[in-house]
Nucleic acid binder design. Sequence first.
DNA 1: ATGCTTGACATTGTGCACAATTAATTTTAG
DNA 2: CTAAAATTAATTGTGCACAATGTCAAGCAT
Lengths: 237, 237
Amino acid sequence: MIKKSFPVESDTETINIDQQVYEQIKRAIFDHRLPPGTKLTEEKLSDLFAVSRERIRKVLQRLSYDKCVSLKPNRGAYVAQPSVQEARDVFATRGLIESHIVELVVQNATEADYAHLEQNIAREYAAHQQGRLNEAIALSGEFHLLLAEISRNIVLLDILRDLVARSSLIIAMYGRQSFSLCGYEDHQVFLKRLKTRQVQQAKKLMQEHLRTLEAQLYFEARSARDIDLTEVFKPKA
Amino acid sequence: MIKKSFPVESDTETINIDQQVYEQIKRAIFDHRLPPGTKLTEEKLSDLFAVSRERIRKVLQRLSYDKCVSLKPNRGAYVAQPSVQEARDVFATRGLIESHIVELVVQNATEADYAHLEQNIAREYAAHQQGRLNEAIALSGEFHLLLAEISRNIVLLDILRDLVARSSLIIAMYGRQSFSLCGYEDHQVFLKRLKTRQVQQAKKLMQEHLRTLEAQLYFEARSARDIDLTEVFKPKA
DNA sequence: ATGCTTGACATTGTGCACAATTAATTTTAG
DNA sequence: CTAAAATTAATTGTGCACAATGTCAAGCAT
């Protein structure tokens, strides 16, 4: 017990630094503070967070696995610019997976689970009323993840975590200013159907919910400065 | 043009080294040459492949994202030991996703696509007949991925790639010696249904196919040495 | 004999310095 | 004045050395 000077401090803080930097950058991307295409220079980030460059490097690599940043060899890291195709595929896949999650939830949900869902909705409502929009958005995403947790399928949860994150980025890229998101009312009605075990209606609601989200994107009228020239002039495809 | 001594050599080879090491390790895991739980020491691997330790480190990290190795802080890397729960979830998720892929394939497949599928089956058959079992297994997995490609949904393809890889690991862990895998006949019959646009039958075949796979695993009668104590004694489950 | 502390060893983790690559700018020849 | 070539600058990539951490075994006390 003599050797270790401050075990708690060195241990926990060191472990969390990676995670903290990771989450801060991710949050910044989802809050539109870092629009798609923004260059993420390793040195600038390392200065900004007061950590070493290799730590940033590791975080950026992790973010690239999440498809939140694209890593171009010897060119650096950029906030990802999901293609229209990718955007459509993400939402289509969410429809498939979340419909199935709804079935599993109706099968498996306990009273405690429903309580958690209600709590989440309440917090989302509060955040909405008090104008904390970013928090409301985050909670809205968490509602979907909460359902995945209740489905008791770890793999589906992992996949959906990924898809929800990418959805945020897609909305940042293609969403209008007046993007309404999941209304919390949607979640409220949905939960009611869930509790009364109306599986088919719940599934339908979920699919509509996602379709509404997707319908609010505008894939066509992109301003010139947003266009990725590489995408436009690439040889084939 | 004078400065660059051998641009092609340095470029392509350097880029591929990571990929090559990655694939060799992954292949070794799937071919049962590295059983689940095997310790993967950074230094040994770097000596073995004659590359630097940091390169190995990066590859191991990537493999941990694929859930093929588990990285324990300050303890090293081990070939992953998927839990029974995870195994079940992987197959359940494959059922969901691949059923949907079947629908998309019937909608989108061109003649060229069907030709590719037939080619794959032929090669799988040949590998089987000539006793190249590992190759047959790989081709069998590729058949499923080929379907995902034809579905024209990039996200589904990515997810399935992941799940197929994890399936290999699960089979390595829980499969009997006499594991029969996807018989190539299954694929043959399946393709016939596909071509005649018999969607429901094709979907049913796919689901049966996966269920057969899963049924050949034995989760119960594990020998004592295989039991993961962490799993047994974990606080709440 | 059992349990705890201590020290040596092995392995992983991190920061730094330098190499390699690419983009931008300037130079130079036609 | 234009265009190709060469230089320069900025940024990423890699290997090395050292620090931190965890494991194992031996010794000591109970």
